[in-house]
């Protein structure tokens, strides 16, 4: 296993790290220079003694990076993403996301601080099927000030409506703005979900298997647009994938999870076939 960051390596005295991570102040001047957007130290998640999902994950992701999380089913990829934004309660460990630190459970305010700065794209797009593509993108403003106006594009301020149209334009779907989400193809729906995530101008974009439910051609289109838009806007992107080609082609760095631990963490250009085979060996 490669330790991703000397600051958070296993050799670092745990006492100083944990005491440091307990407070809500920045880590250190050095870390500011490195512009950390996400730090995880010894993260553990289990549902019971036998069902351990994450078993001591430590990683460090810098601003602007595009990171692919790979691993077999049950390796803990989705759980890790959900732990980062407080959708799951952690069993142990320290997490710092976008300057907000928490241990087991993020407080309501901490969750709010994190979630207002992120975009999240799920495998099955998570669009409201009976509403238009435009309204679904406007939903990206929920959680922000005056968010009742994001219930529907009809109530939204003009600049939100325009931003939503620009986001749809960015994923080449502005001509489908008025179409209901359930009339879109799988690939189109996923691109609308990406537009919804982008419209809030997030610093961190998290995507859980964004292309898994799509055919290969649509999957490549979606991934290409996704990664291009993230890079153009200097958004840090973390995505999980079962598709090794996607993971290596569209990321700067690949982190492999196996049995709840980091199996390897390498720049995508250095990932070999043997590395990838090792991830899925039982």
């Amino acid at each position: 296993m490669t330790s991703p960051d000397p600051v958070l390596s296993d050799n670092t005295p745990s006492k100083s790290i944990s005491s440091e991570l307990m407070s809500d102040v920045p880590l250190s001047d050095n870390s500011k220079v490195m512009a950390p957007i996400l730090r995880v130290q010894n993260l553990k998640k289990s549902y019971d003694k036998e069902n351990v999902i994450l078993n001591g994950i430590s990683l460090h992701i810098r601003e602007g990076e595009t990171v692919a999380l790979i691993g077999s089913n049950g390796a803990g990829k989705s759980t890790l993403l959900k732990c980062l934004v407080g959708l799951h309660e952690n069993t142990d460990g320290d997490v710092e996301v976008l300057g907000t630190r928490f241990k087991r459970t993020a407080t309501r305010q901490q969750r709010h601080n994190i979630r207002k700065q992120i975009g999240f794209v799920f495998q099955n797009h998570g669009l409201v099927k009976r509403l238009s593509a435009h309204t679904n993108v406007v939903h990206g403003f929920l959680g922000q000030k005056g968010s009742w106006r994001a219930f529907n594009q009809a109530f939204a301020p003009q600049d939100w409506r325009e931003k939503a149209m620009h986001a749809l334009e960015a994923v080449k779907l502005s001509d489908k703005a008025k179409d209901r989400a359930d009339s879109l193809s799988g690939g189109q729906a996923q691109r609308v979900a990406i537009a919804r995530a982008l419209v809030r101008e997030p610093r961190l974009l998290i995507a859980d298997e964004p292309a898994a439910s799509l055919d290969p051609a649509s999957g490549h289109t979606v991934m290409q647009q996704f990664v291009d838009l993230a890079r153009e806007n200097n958004i840090t992107l973390i995505f999980t994938s079962h598709d090794m080609e996607h993971a290596v082609s569209y990321s700067d760095r690949v982190i492999a999870l196996k049995s709840g631990k980091i199996h390897f963490d390498k720049p995508s250009g250095e990932v070999s076939k043997a590395d990838l085979h090792g991830v899925f060996d039982q």
Binding site: K82, V85, L87, R111, H112, I114, R115, K116, I118, G119, F120, F122, N124, H125, G126, L127, V128, R130, L131, H139, G140, L142, G143, Q144, S147, W148, A150, F151, N152, A193, R196, A197, R200, I206
Partner: peptide, 23 residues
């Protein structure tokens, strides 16, 4: 799924009701 998606970006229970559940 849309409820989880909007919860993940910080939408309140009331926002989720109005934006997802009722439609």
């Amino acid at each position: 799924e849309p409820q989880v998606a909007l919860d993940a970006i910080g939408a309140s229970k009331f926002s989720i009701l109005m934006s997802v559940v009722l439609p």
